[in-house]
């Protein structure tokens, strides 16, 4: 059997699977986004770019896309600020504690998304723990609610996405030579210099992949913005769902979904190129 033959045979099942569950629905969505909404049949001819024109020219949708982008960006930055130190501390822990704390960090991923988000709703709501604590501590007269706010959505997103950053950075830390930090110290480098010149270049690949995962998951998140953000604080994913299920304008919803996908891809590719150019030596 030739190598090419074996290659296709071995990757065949996975390729078929991806073609069926990813490419076909994606292609159909793209096709749908070019059609025209019809109250009787749902969607049909004529084909055109009019749905895209509508989304991109309507300030209502633009605001939703800007909000989605801002939420994803802030979530990614927060995950970086929390996750990188977390990974470094985790890396330095000794045997029983390291496993234990890794489990704690991965904990949010073990809970179903709706359950976890409703848990946050209990914390954030007007009758919630957060508001009560604020009043008890004398920070505010009225109980503060984070429901239907960007802050609430961001906190809930960071909670579930920070493990991806920790694991990515941790994996990068595992690969390097731990003695390099000692070597730098013996050569006269202080703590901050060691971080900037030795540790950071080592974990940059982890930071890059972690950011890509966190950003794309945050930008396309549905359940968390739907429950915490509600209808008042729409993001691209919830807006698309709204067009499909509430307004019944399927082609417009499909156009939103396609713009979200293409925008997401574009931002991530640009980011990847930027990081790889700036830290070229870290990726060899």
């Amino acid at each position: 059997m030739t190598t090419t033959w074996r290659f296709w045979l071995l990757s065949g099942p996975a390729l078929t699977f991806y073609a069926l569950v990813l490419l076909v629905p994606l292609g159909l969505t793209a096709l749908l986004s070019l059609q025209t909404a019809d109250p009787a049949t749902g969607a049909g001819a004529p084909l055109g770019l009019h749905n895209y024109a509508e989304v991109l020219s309507d300030s209502y949708f633009l605001e939703i896309f800007v909000r989605t982008l801002a939420l994803a960006l802030v979530t990614t930055i927060a995950c970086l600020l929390l996750g990188v130190p977390e990974a470094i501390i985790l890396h330095r822990m000794r045997a029983p504690w390291r496993g234990l704390f890794l489990l704690v960090i991965l904990g949010p991923l073990l809970i179903a998304v709706v359950v976890r988000t409703l848990g946050w709703a209990l914390v954030f709501g007007p009758q919630g723990v957060l508001g009560a604590a604020g009043v008890a501590l004398g920070w505010s007269r009225e109980p503060v609610s984070l429901m239907y706010t960007s802050a609430g959505v961001t906190i809930a997103l960071v909670h579930v996405l920070v493990p991806f950053m920790v694991v990515a950075v941790w994996a990068a830390l595992q690969r390097g030579d731990a003695q390099a930090e000692h070597a730098a110290a013996s050569l006269g480098a202080g703590g901050f210099t060691i971080f900037r010149r030795i540790l950071l270049p080592r974990i940059v690949p982890g930071i890059a992949s972690g950011s890509v995962v966190v950003f794309s998951l945050a930008a396309t998140a549905f359940a968390t913005p739907a429950i915490i953000g509600g209808r008042r604080l729409k993001v691209a994913a919830t807006a698309a769902q709204d067009e499909f299920l509430a307004t019944l304008n399927w082609p417009l919803g499909a156009a939103i979904a396609v713009i979200l996908l293409v925008g997401n891809l574009g931002i991530l590719l640009a980011y990847d190129r930027l990081v790889k150019r700036r830290f070229a030596e870290s990726f060899r």
């Binding site: 030579d177 050569l187 006269g188 480098a189 270049p201």
Partner: peptide
């Protein structure tokens, strides 16, 4: 360690992988 002024050579060499030979030597 940074202010002891000792030269240390490690079993794993502990070179800085993202720096050239000259940059490694010039670090101290």
């Amino acid at each position: 360690p940074a202010r002891r002024g000792l030269g240390v050579v490690f079993q794993s060499y502990a070179l800085f992988p993202h720096m050239s030979v000259a940059e490694n030597v010039a670090f101290g």
